[in-house]
């Protein structure tokens, strides 16, 4: 157990009568990046708020950095950093004023607080923002300052709640780079996201959350394998033949998906090479002209749709 930074066991949380978390379990190893993936309303933010001591769970046990979030909240607060969904900054004050204030509230002492603010401003490329109020920062700058504020004491565990929502690609790349360098430095990171690509890029392990529970857990590769392994994509020259092509594919695997805009039919396949040659022959004999045929691993989007589809739920409960 020494390697565990976050333990969540059977956590329930209701708002009014609506369950936000419904028996959620989670374990995150020290020094790893853990992605929590799920749609809006899945309970991701509630989970982060409980982990960061902002909310009390109704039931269940939650430990962060070896301390219980309810009975030892103060000890937890010394060891965590939080980057919430919305900027947790004083917008009327400047960047340096914000960081100095947070450093003082971490009891670094006046001089050390000033030094720390300077270090962080430099590290996050905000050293030249001067006295400008945070309210006038761009979205990316604000997010960087927010991240800097959550790192004032170099936390053991860092929570990032949808850290790149609303950022442009450049801002997103900046945040990703920061998360990677933190993880390299040994910080445990729990990050929630709706972007499957983000979890794929950053996380060592991923928990897929839906309706307040973890419905799947594993590395990105493991999750991809769970949807039935590889897929074959066939792009047709003539969109009129989509239906005909779609009727051919089930012979090689499972459910076929059709994307009319891209003239694409796609299906999971069991045996890669057998499927490839078989599909080429079948298309040829049916007189269907393909522009492109490719074998590939499923995307996390497909995994997610597969795991959260009502179909899948029905199968699981049956």
């Amino acid at each position: 157990m020494t390697g565990t930074a976050i333990t969540v066991e059977g956590v329930h949380k209701k708002y009014r009568d609506k369950p936000a978390l419904d028996g959620l379990d989670l374990e995150v190893a020290r020094g790893t990046v853990h992605g929590v993936l799920g749609p809006n309303g899945a309970g991701k933010t509630t989970l982060v708020r409980i982990l960061s001591t902002l909310l009390r769970p109704d039931r269940g046990r939650v430990e962060v950095a070896g301390h219980d979030v309810v009975t030892e909240a103060a000890a937890v607060r010394f060891r965590i950093g939080l980057l919430g969904q919305h900027a947790a900054l004083d917008e009327q004050l400047g960047g340096r004023q914000n960081l100095e204030m947070f450093a003082r509230l971490h009891h670094l002492g006046a001089r050390r607080a000033r030094e720390r603010a300077d270090e962080l401003l430099l590290r996050f490329g905000l050293a030249d923002t001067g006295r400008k109020a945070v309210g006038q920062y761009s979205g990316g700058m604000r997010r960087r300052l927010d991240l800097a504020a959550s790192l004032v004491t170099d936390p053991e565990v860092l929570f990032l709640d949808e850290p790149t929502t609303g950022l442009d690609p450049r801002g997103r790349a900046e945040v990703w780079a920061s998360v990677r360098s933190l993880a390299d430095g040994g910080t445990t990171v729990l990050l929630t996201t709706q972007y499957l690509e983000e979890a794929d890029q950053l996380a060592d392990r991923i928990s897929v959350v839906d309706r307040g529970r973890v419905i799947a857990d594993g590395t990105a590769d493991e999750l991809k394998a769970r949807t039935g392994g590889d897929r074959i994509d066939v792009v047709l020259r003539d969109a009129g033949q989509l239906a005909a092509a779609g009727a051919l594919l089930p012979a090689f695997g499972g459910e076929v998906s059709v994307d009319a805009d891209r003239r694409l039919v796609s299906a999971p396949v069991a045996d890669r090479m057998a499927a490839l040659t078989g599909v080429v022959r079948a298309l040829e004999s049916a007189g269907i002209e393909a522009e492109d045929i490719a074998l590939r691993r499923p995307t996390l989007d497909e995994v997610f749709l597969h795991l959260t589809s009502d179909d899948h739920r029905a199968k699981e409960t049956a």
Partner: peptide
């Protein structure tokens, strides 16, 4: 209504400060 109160509350500061 600003996120800043969340940051205060997630920090090891005195409760009523």
């Amino acid at each position: 209504n600003k996120g800043v109160i969340d940051r205060f509350r997630s920090m090891p500061m005195a409760n009523g400060a």
